Amino acid sequence: MFNKHIVLSDIFGRTGALEKFVDALPFSSIIVDPYNGKKMTFADEQQAYQYFTEHVGLEAYTEKLHQVLLNTNYNVQLIGFSVGASIIWRISDRHYEGIIQNAFLFYGSQIRHSLDIEPTFTVNVICPIKERHFDITAFKLAITDKNKVNIIQSHYLHGFMNECSTNFDLEGYRKFKQFIVKYSTDPNIISGI
């Protein structure tokens, strides 16, 4: 059993909406974001994406998660959204002495650039119904036979868990938040989603 959630934000970083999500979890949780806890005010996703790529990038955000995990001495469950999901995937082939119990990767579109990775812990990849920039069916086929990977097809668009996203979907948000809580106590419910 794990002791804490580590929640990795998307390109919007630490927002009131993400804090609300974390506060609603019945477990101790911390937020890791690309902007060191500073709340950013982006006009839209394009502005957030541009800022992230110019001022942070995947490598720096991945290294930040790596350092957090190296300094962790308790069992964790990881939850990542978009770029947060992608960086969890990027470290999923490393060994952290059994610290990471499992992970939820919501619409991590950059995963498609690292298909050679073989996770060392269970990752639940939650896919959007479609993606603008690539074929979601081909992506799922590319990771479907990997050990420790569960693919969960949602009926929602990329960003459905983020109130700051134009694709936010309250029904999907509630359904998957409840799923995380249930899975945290019983990992065998994966087939019930």
Rank of each mutant, 00 (worst) to 15 (best):
Y156I: 06
D186T: 13
V56F: 00
V7F: 01
S165N: 12
I87K: 02
D135E: 11
D186I: 04
P34R: 02
A17G: 10
R132N: 11
K146S: 01
G84I: 01
R132Y: 10
H113K: 12
I88A: 09
V22T: 13
Y107D: 01
I129F: 00
N188R: 11
V123F: 01
E45I: 11
H158Y: 08
A142W: 00
D33Q: 10
D116K: 08
A24F: 06
L8M: 03
S28P: 02
V123S: 12
I11T: 07
L78I: 06
S28G: 02
H66C: 00
Y61N: 13
Y35H: 10
A138C: 08
V22W: 08
P34N: 00
S184A: 05
V68K: 08
H155S: 15
G57C: 04
I88Y: 05
D23Y: 08
Y74S: 13
Q50N: 15
F106H: 07
F134W: 09
V125S: 02
E131H: 07
A138Y: 05
I136P: 09
L69K: 02
P187I: 14
G13T: 07
Y74I: 14
Q67K: 15
H66V: 00
N162A: 09
A85G: 10
F27H: 13
K175H: 06
V149R: 05
I126N: 05
C164I: 06
F176N: 04
R132Q: 11
G98T: 04
Q110Y: 12
L8T: 06
H5K: 10
D169C: 14
H158T: 05
T15L: 12
I136G: 09
N147V: 08
V149A: 04
L69W: 07
K175E: 14
L25T: 09
F104D: 11
A138R: 07
S114P: 01
P187W: 10
S114F: 12
V76S: 08
T62S: 14
T185V: 13
Q47T: 14
Y74T: 14
S184G: 06
V68C: 07
T185Q: 02
Y61A: 08
E63I: 06
E45N: 12
F42H: 14
L105I: 04
L65D: 02
H55R: 04
L115Q: 01
L105R: 00
K64F: 03
K38V: 12
D23S: 15
G192W: 08
M161K: 06
K182C: 03
F139Y: 13
D116H: 15
T15Q: 08
V32C: 07
A60H: 10
G80P: 02
Y49C: 04
L65Y: 02
G84R: 04
P187R: 11
G98D: 04
L170N: 10
I143T: 00
